[in-house]
Amino acid sequence: MVLSLASPPALDAVDWVALAQFESGDWAFVREQLPYLARGFVVTLLLTLTSIVLGFLAGFPMGAIEVYGRGPLRSFVYGAGVVLRAIPIVVILVFMFFVAPIPLPGGQFAFDVPRVGSVSFGRSAFLAATVGLGLRSAAYQAQIFRGALQSVSGGQMEAARSVGMSRLQGIRHVVLPQALRRSIPGFQNEFTIVLKDTSIAFAIGLTELFARADNLFTQRTTATLELFLFISLVYFIMTFVTNRSLDYLGDYYAIPGGDR
């Protein structure tokens, strides 16, 4: 794993000592660049959050419309969902950045993060990435909520109506609390998917974690393997922590005796 396989020479021709220094030099390079990468990490986290939140804000009503809505609105939501789920995220991102009629602000976002330093990234790329990842996520979150809403049995609604609640009250106080709990496992997947897919925003030049590793790799091509293994590890830890936290959330809100 530590060996660079850039040009496999005959084994006896390898200068192992030089190679060892060379390799450790590449790891040292990664270490040197940690602050630079850490700033990218902040952008990745931020983009994940904004995208998930946008996805939730748009996806939740979309799911409800697919279950309770009717007419052209429902057809539109359904159609938009099919299209958003069928197109590769990289196409969506590039489209949002170059084509979509959204007013993208120019310039840089910059702010200081304690111990990491000044984080800055392009406003337009960040906004386009948020809209792209967010809308795609909305299409998937809508499916999660739709499935969860449909999984709450019809008897629950009947029971709510029988104690005098209106349809809307029944949805709000009886169906929703159950459906939201049931959507936690699906939401968990969605969260990690968005987290990993933020790496594709490098295609529109957003300087998040992956793009920064890519920049460094063009600076120092021998450190490629080290760089990408390192950021893979960072992504892995992020998905792992996310999954465990959401597991915990699921357990915390679990209804005794009820399935999630």
């Binding site: 990690t192 594709i200 893979s232 992504y235």
Partner: peptide, 12 residues
């Protein structure tokens, strides 16, 4: 594999 981005895997 499921915890890391496909893009990073391809680059590696």
């Amino acid at each position: 594999i499921r915890g890391t981005p496909l893009l990073a895997q391809l680059f590696v």
